[in-house]
Design a protein around this nucleic acid. Structure first.
Length: 875
RNA sequence: GGGGGAUUAGCUCAGUUGGCUAGAGCGUUUGACUGGCAGUCAAGAGGUCAUCGGUUCGAUUCCGAUAUUCUCCA
């Protein structure tokens, strides 16, 4: 059975059982501080479980791309070494929200596996929760009873709390779970050890394929478990593992999910998968990682040096490293795999095809950047070896520096050391790494107290901010947060006019007032579906009705910038083409920043054209039309631009400025009519990554300020040129004249210096056959160097000592002609160190020229005499 | 968010106990050789050593701040 059919059968099966099939969520999580990436199928339904979002469908099924790079389930560094762990994988899942429970979940899972997929019942085992005394929980006999209707009791095993009690986090919905395992070993092996003894023992051929979670409790902050009124089902089945089972192969990498990628790698590297263990590991690593990287970029997350982008960069670099070390790839190669992935996946995940060109460019650029990093590291490594040629152990501190500062992977350091017959002090390296981690942890330390529940409220915060900027509100809950010794309070209200940071628009600021207390709202953010107001002090009148008031001026400026962003987005598509896709956006009261896919620098003309169109649309004073609860299909019909990597519900908010011009899905706040924006001006346009450009622009007051400043500068320049009609030409002339004068001046100075140099030796005396000159000079200390080097170019056989007096301070300069320096007795540096004693100073230099300074001008003569004595002794 | 590094010619980079007349390769300009191209040779142009402050007789070099950027950790 082809993998695409396996996926299809799953979704078809649950559709036939009344499930709504929904698209998976984008991999990158945007509004949950505890999670960077989707790591389980249930993530996108977390709010439903928590009761923060209403239930839209009681039964849902989907396939969800998940990314696991750290934590108990997976460690990035292990992926590829075995045959069944992945960074990115698909999780097939079915859910019930307060609808069916254990009975149906169990019997459908069984029917699908044994009747639809035809897995041999004799290879299956199931586990149920065996109870836990410390929690006061009994074994899950209910689940066991349902299983007994399908499978022999001997194949039902009890599991521990660790394996069979599932929790989302420290608090929240949780419950016992029941896993289905399959034994893929040969009959001989099964005879030796029964499969039931290998369940949950990390055996590569006795594996869990499906986990059915029965959510029936809520874990409170005090660790107690409370029964839920509505019970839910949450299941997850690893698609790659299932495919391995159904295709009868021993490794996920032997399924048709991975074989096309590996075939391409064989083709590119000229090496055969399976012929060498290390090369095979490398191919597994690369074919796994390219999926994670490509899909995440397609979802709008570019590699970067922080947060989610950094994780993507690390995954990509790990793949490049394996390709470089074991497959001989010395140039970018991963981007060639994108086309293979597109061919495989475009029907299920169309975003990868639509973004193919961008994904390839970004990956190629990242690969090349990393290869540069590697060659820098190699260079540093070689330098280290040169200056430490007699060592047999590479210093751990140095290895860590190479890794930490220059991004050079430690395993490459070890490899290169081995090639030279050296070892690396790994303990030292680990010490450095541990210290680094400790520092980071301390810096990121944030002490968050428990929420203080004031007025319990069901569901989400009511957001009134689209229509009003002020309202009455009551505190639902609040908590204290301490970060870097600063104390904040976070407050959740029952309703609020404050816009919470989202879609690139910053959160509102303003005040909460009750009685005599005014709380300053420093920012507003969304955590899942709760509006969190960050305020500067603890609320005193927690039961009072607060007046929540948004800073109106800032809000209006922000709306200007947000609406202008939409106008500009549309203008960019007109001027540059419809390949322009939003890749990021930041809108606050001061400016707007917009990142978009485009492959070349914008010309001055293009920038002007975009500005012109936007300003035209502003002057048309187009009324903004905002529609709520538009079905997503209808919105797309209207031509609304949706973003890759954004999660949209079935009903969306559509912001329109002229249905023929700009229609976008957007939750932000906007102007009533475009005239309010007043003026639009682009400040800069530049690249931020391969294929991605960034524009920064201002509107209204800020645009006016900017233009005025530019005008002021211009008029100042004009004034300096006495009101010249063509100031640019005047400046050009001035620059040219300046250059000519400078050349003339240099020429004159050279001639003068030569002349001075010739003059200089006239006062010299002969010591032996050497011309010796020692005198006070009025030459500028900065010039004396030139003077002496001029002399060098025209005469031989001299020693010059000049003293320059400036008040009490005095400078000495010693010059010796190159021919005398060949005779190694003559050394200007040595001389100056001796003679500066007399002027109470210090100095130094090379053999042919040296300078010094001192504080006692009365010693000049002594110093000059000492110099003469030295020359006498040398001759 | 925290640590570390980097910033020198158009580009890629050298430049260690603070004083070498700031260099190399590539690119560029000019000239010579050639019918032309390519090439070879020769000569030249091109630098506020990121910015601002400090230490010092003297800072590209040492220290601090800022900006930009790379990198590791969270």
């Amino acid at each position: 059975m082809k993998s695409s059919d396996i996926r299809k059968h799953f979704l078809d099966y649950f559709e036939s059982k009344g499930h709504q099939i929904v698209p998976g969520a984008p991999i990158v999580v945007k509004d949950d501080p505890t999670l960077l990436f989707i790591n389980a199928g249930m993530n996108q339904f977390k709010d439903v479980f928590l009761g923060n979002s209403p239930v839209q469908y009681a039964r849902i099924a989907d396939t969800q791309k998940c990314l696991r790079v750290s934590g108990k389930h997976n460690d990035l560094e292990e992926v590829g070494h075995d045959t069944y762990h992945h960074t990115l994988f698909e999780m097939l899942g079915n859910w019930s929200f307060g609808d069916y429970f254990k009975k149906e979940a169990i019997s459908w899972a069984w029917e699908l596996l044994t009747d639809v997929y035809n897995i041999d019942k004799n290879n299956l085992y199931v586990t149920v929760f065996g109870g836990d005394e410390s929690e006061g929980l009994n074994p899950d006999e209910e689940a066991k009873d349902f299983w007994k209707q399908h499978i022999d009791e001997s194949r039902i095993l009890y599991g521990s709390k660790k394996d069979n009690f599932w929790e989302m986090g420290e608090t929240g919905p949780c419950g016992p779970c029941s896993e289905i395992h399959v034994d893929l070993r040969s009959d001989e092996e099964k005879k030796l050890i029964p499969g039931k003894e290998l369940v949950n023992k990390d055996h590569p051929q006795v594996i869990e394929i499906w986990n059915l979670v029965f959510i029936q409790f809520n874990r409170m902050a005090n660790k107690q478990l409370v029964s839920l009124p509505h019970k839910h089902i949450d299941t997850g089945m690893g698609f790659e593992r299932l495919t391995m089972v159904l295709q009868g192969v021993r490794s996920n990498y032997d399924t048709d999910i991975f074989t096309p990628l590996i075939a391409k790698l064989e083709n590119l590297s000229g090496k055969k998968y399976g012929s060498d263990e290390k090369q095979s590991i490398a191919m597994r690593v690369i074919s796994d990682h390219i999926r994670a990287v490509a899909f995440t970029i397609a979802d709008g997350q570019l590699p970067s040096n922080t947060g989610a982008g950094y994780v993507i960069r690390r995954i990509l670099r790990r793949a490049v490293r394996y390709g470089f070390t074991f497959l001989g790839f010395e140039e970018a190669f991963m981007y060639h795999l994108v086309a293979v992935l597109v061919a495989q996946m475009k029907d299920v995940f169309p975003e990868i095809e639509k973004q193919q060109q961008l994904v390839e460019m970004v990956i190629k650029e990242e690969e090349q950047a990393f290869l540069r990093t590697l060659s820098q590291g190699v260079k540093r490594f070689e330098q280290y070896l040169e200056s430490n040629s007699n060592t047999s152990v590479i210093d751990g501190e140095f290895a860590f520096e190479l890794f930490d500062t220059f991004g050079f992977p430690i395993d490459l350091t070890q490899l290169m050391a081995r090639e030279k017959g050296l070892t690396v002090d790994m303990d030292g390296f680990q010490r450095g790494l541990a210290a680094q981690k400790e520092r980071s942890r301390k810096a990121a330390e944030q002490v968050t107290d428990d929420w203080v529940e004031v007025n319990a409220q069901e569901g989400v915060t009511r957001f009134l901010g689209y229509n009003s900027l002020q309202c009455e509100a009551q505190i639902v809950k609040f908590r204290k947060v301490e970060q870097k010794k600063k104390i904040f309070y976070e407050i959740v209200l029952d309703q609020t006019p404050f816009y919470a940071e989202s879609g690139g628009q910053v959160g509102d600021i303003g005040v909460l007032v009750a009685g005599s207390q005014t709380l300053k709202v420093l920012s507003t953010k969304k955590e899942n579906n709760l509006w969190v107001h960050v305020v500067d002090q603890a609320p005193k009148e927690i039961d009072a009705v607060y007046i929540a008031k948004v800073d109106e001026y800032k809000r209006r400026l922000t709306a200007n910038n947000h609406s202008a962003t939409h106008l500009m987005h549309a203008a960019l598509r007109q001027v540059l083409g419809t390949h322009v896709e939003q890749k990021g956006s930041l809108v606050d009261a001061d400016r707007l920043r917009f990142d978009f896919a485009h492959f070349a620098k914008m010309s001055v003309e293009e920038i002007k054209e975009v500005e012109k169109i936007v300003n035209l649309k502003i002057r048309e004073n187009i009324s903004g039309n905002i529609q709520l609860d538009v079905p997503i299909d209808k919105a797309k019909e209207m031509g609304a631009m949706a973003l890759f990597g954004e999660k949209y519900g079935d009903k969306v908010r559509v912001v329109t400025f002229d249905p023929e011009y700009s229609v976008e899905l957007c939750g932000g706040t906007h102007v009533d009519a475009t005239g309010q924006i007043g003026c639009f001006k682009i400040l800069s346009e530049g690249a931020i990554a391969a294929g991605v450009r960034r524009i920064e622009a201002v509107t209204a007051d800020r645009a006016e300020e900017y233009i005025n400043n530019q005008m002021d500068t211009l008029s100042e320049i004009k004034e300096l040129f006495k009101g010249a009609a063509h100031p640019v030409q005047s400046v050009k002339n001035l620059i040219q004249e300046h250059a000519e004068f400078q050349k003339q001046l240099e020429q004159l100075q050279k001639e003068k210096a030569l002349q001075n140099a010739r003059e200089l030796l006239k006062d010299s005396v002969k010591i032996g056959n050497v011309s010796f000159l020692a005198k006070k000079s009025a030459v500028d200390p900065g010039q004396v160097k030139n003077l002496i080097h001029q002399l060098r170019s025209i005469e031989n056989n001299w020693v010059v000592v000049l003293a320059m007096e400036q008040g009490e301070k005095v400078n000495l300069a010693v010059g010796i002609s190159d021919d005398l320096v060949q005779n190694n007795k003559f050394h200007a540096g040595n001389m100056i160190r001796e003679i500066t004693v007399h002027i109470k100073g210090g100095g130094g230099g090379q053999s042919n020229f040296a300078m010094a300074g001192g504080k006692d001008s009365s010693g000049i003569l002594k110093a000059l005499e000492a110099a003469q004595d030295m020359v006498k002794s040398w001759v």
